[in-house]
Amino acid sequence: MTLPVDTILVIVILTGFLILGTARLITAIRLSAIQGVCIGLLPVAASGGGTSVRVLLLGLAIVILKGVVFPRLLRRAIRESRTSGEMQPYVGITASVITGILALVAAFWLDARMDFLPDSHGLVAPTAFFTIITGLFLIVARKLAITQVIGYLILENGIYVFGLAIALEVPVIVELGVLLDMFVAVFVMGIAIFRINREFNHMDSDQLRNLKG
């Protein structure tokens, strides 16, 4: 059962590229939702026929959280902040996509270098590295606070795939704790964006620069 896993991983990489290449916030949120759903399906697909109830339930929780709840929270933050809906990048779209290509090369290079990883599957670790780099890049290369949250979500997706790459049995309570923390993080960031917007009448993290030295 390697086919669906590979397909899902390729979709994860593609959504990463599309997010780098989009100029519209709403598209970026949709893409991050698609990526989130893929992430939730990964462990289910990887376990093949012998899917346990635990894997199924966790997968379901991730799909609901990343595919439905987070996009909703983010869309609400956009609606309430009366933004133009543009990404407002520091680094232009073309340059971003080129960065993405470089990131993918770097990801495969890293995977080759880190031969000590107990990699269960050829594509898993490179996808994880690529997604992590994409997330970090989005956080630093986009102006709006909300795109930084999207970047954070992509980063978390990458780390989750990385967890699968090293084939580790994380206890359910810890997984749930991590998910709960993520949920609260996005929730808190959403409120923060709302309050920043109310106070400053914008949500450019670019203009948050009164505190120095």
Binding site: I139, Q148, A192, I196, L208, R209, L211
Partner: peptide, 9 residues
């Protein structure tokens, strides 16, 4: 608020 956003992120 600015401090909080930096801290959070």
């Amino acid at each position: 608020l600015e401090a909080m956003w930096k801290y959070l992120l």
